[in-house]
Amino acid sequence: MKNIYKVLLLALIVAAVLSPLASSSPDGLERVAEDLGFLEKGEGAPVIKSPVPDYVFPGIENEAAATAAAGVAGTLATFGAMYLLAKSVKRKNAGEIKGK
């Protein structure tokens, strides 16, 4: 439909195709934590359990496929969450702004 949805499609392609190719090296903060010896402070059990820990979709053997599935699920979940939040933020003000 609209062009902007091509960006959503692009996001899904990035999540499905590029995310399994991502570098698995530590990021800047992890690297510093490792080098300066405070990484273990963050290695206790997480305070809450996530359904898809570390972007590996449970129940999928192939690691690339599990990452791609996690990426697609997360991209859609993020779209949905943001859409609903934006919708609720917008709606409350619809009366004042809409002059039509």
């Binding site: 991502a22 997360g74 859409y83």
Partner: peptide, 24 residues
């Protein structure tokens, strides 16, 4: 925020989520 912006916010958030997965 108007009606037209709502999907843009959703799409931008989705794109950033996806892009954040791609460590370079």
């Amino acid at each position: 925020l108007d009606e037209r912006q709502v999907p843009r916010l959703g799409i931008m958030a989705a794109f950033i989520f996806a892009a954040q997965m791609v460590n370079f």
